[in-house]
Simulated scan of single mutants.
Amino acid sequence: MGLGLALASAVAFGGSGVAAKPLIEAGLDPLHVVWLRVTGAAVVMLPLAVRHRALPRRHPGLLAGFGLLAVAGVQACYFAAISRVPVGVALLVEYLAPALVLGWVRFVQRRPVTRAAALGVVLAVGGLACVVEIWSGLGFDALGLLLAFGAACCQVGYFVLSDRGGDAGDDAPDPLGVIAYGLLVGAVLLTAVARPWNLDWPVLTHTVPVNGTPVSAALLLAWIVLVATVLAYVTGIVAVRRLSPQVAGVVACLEAVLATVLAWVLLGERLSAPQVAGGAVVLVGAFIAQASAPARGAADPVAAGGPERELSRREPAA
């Protein structure tokens, strides 16, 4: 279940770039596209925020961090990065996040990571290098690379915060409520930065070319809001709860592969043989990392623990 949800989240997130690129090329500022995405999703999720109105009082730090890092930070840094460096390069840098998650687990939480999980990350990152053909150019904008790395750091916060409270039983914050309030916080922060009153609204009333085919700009925006944001975040945070931050991070690397495939099919951007091979390596890395993590409750996902191991001994008898 967790792996399936993580894959669904990767597919949904992967479709955002294909829908957003025509809007940006039609004249919308990248930051305005991010604002439309987050604010639209926040409006859709508003009923859930009302339903879980006790969350801000019980978990204010979690909601603020989720809105700042997992919503506003990742999206703003990524869209700003692709305005200065190639999309493929920005994706590769951003999806160093799984390796950074392992670093967080190992050096901040001081838990040993399994060799298989580390190998999965290495394979996934190496495969991504082939998918985006990193060797095709070296003259990149330094600020663009720094922004992409900022997106990677924010994505680490997404995985770590999504996992927070996952084992707290009845006291765990509801993931849908966390997403709803995270989107609200992100929308407020982005409003201050993006200044949407300067947005070129007439663009949304026309059609934009997608590989030569005219498509309604409003339809593309609806896809970005409902599928690439609402569905993507909902399936993503639930997947992290069922897996673990580092495993979900590796599976999320498939977003870059799926985004490249969608760009090939919908935008006419062809895949080369090294890119196809790189996609296969990413899949292998994700599988290895998934297979190396025991089910939650049987043992610690990345470390052999004391109470957790004792609990796993009692479970078969129960």
Rank of each mutant, 00 (worst) to 15 (best):
M1K: 04
L3D: 12
L3C: 08
A8D: 05
V11S: 05
G14P: 07
G14R: 02
S16H: 04
S16C: 11
S16F: 13
K21F: 01
P30S: 14
P30E: 12
V44L: 15
R53S: 14
P56Y: 03
P56I: 03
L63Q: 00
V71W: 01
G73H: 01
A76S: 15
A76H: 04
C77T: 14
R84L: 15
P86G: 04
G88H: 11
L91Q: 14
V93M: 03
A97C: 07
L100P: 10
L100V: 12
L102H: 02
R106K: 12
V108L: 02
R110G: 09
P112F: 06
V113K: 02
T114H: 11
R115D: 10
A116Y: 03
A116R: 12
A118Y: 01
G120P: 06
L123W: 00
A129P: 11
V132A: 12
G137A: 09
G157T: 06
Y158L: 11
Y158N: 10
V160E: 09
D163L: 00
G166N: 06
G166H: 05
D174Y: 00
P175F: 09
P175D: 10
I179M: 08
I179N: 14
Y181H: 14
Y181N: 05
V193Y: 14
R195N: 13
R195F: 02
P196G: 01
W197T: 04
N198I: 00
L199R: 01
L204H: 00
N211A: 15
L221F: 03
A232H: 02
A239N: 04
S244Q: 01
A248Q: 08
A248P: 03
G249M: 02
G249A: 05
T260W: 00
V261P: 01
G268C: 03
G268D: 05
V276D: 07
A277H: 06
L283V: 15
A299K: 07
A304W: 13
G306H: 12
P307R: 07
L311I: 08
R314S: 04
